[in-house]
């Protein structure tokens, strides 16, 4: 019976190879697609967040488009200059669970609870000038155990 359960677990997790997060660690999932250029609008902002919070937050890029190959994904991550793990969510488990709307949307979770969902920042709505650093503000609040100021903001990206 144990073997059977183990086999089922392996099959279920085969298409969803996510590393186990440290218990209680804050997580950020970033939904992107290799064929959608919109993420480049957040290259600087998100890149800074990766560096600033890498010890406190577990960042994961999520690719849910089955057309995204590992080669394309690695090329994109290299081009963005981001060092972060990624998962291929081809079974759409994370997509169905977290309901991001567009690629470039992020979801911030603390102990499994969604604290923020949506745009990284509002640069794409302001000709590139960022007026609201939504994710950064949410992370700061979360790490200080304060209420997240804005729980969601519409992102600009490719439909997921």
């Amino acid at each position: 019976m144990k073997s059977l359960l183990l086999a089922i677990a392996i099959v279920i997790t085969a298409g969803f190879n996510i590393k186990a997060a440290a218990p209680g660690k804050v997580k950020v999932y970033l939904f992107i697609q290799t064929r959608c250029p919109c993420i480049y609008s957040h290259k600087e902002t998100f890149g800074k967040l990766l560096k600033t919070y890498r010890n406190q937050v577990e960042f994961t890029a999520v690719f849910s488009d089955s057309k995204d190959s590992d080669k394309d994904i690695q090329e994109l991550m290299r081009d963005l200059g981001w060092k972060m793990p990624y998962v291929r969510d081809t079974g759409h488990r994370l997509l169905m669970r977290l309901h991001p709307r567009v690629s470039t949307d992020v979801v911030l979770l603390d102990a499994g609870k969604v604290l923020y969902k949506g745009a990284i920042d509002d640069g794409p709505s302001n000709m590139g000038m960022v007026k609201h650093f939504y994710l950064q503000d949410a992370l700061e609040a979360c790490l200080q155990h304060l209420p997240v100021p804005v729980p969601s903001a519409p992102g600009k990206g490719c439909l997921l």
Partner: peptide
């Protein structure tokens, strides 16, 4: 044409 190209802004 979502099946061949991602719908985008």
């Amino acid at each position: 044409t979502a099946e061949v190209s991602p719908p985008m802004p």
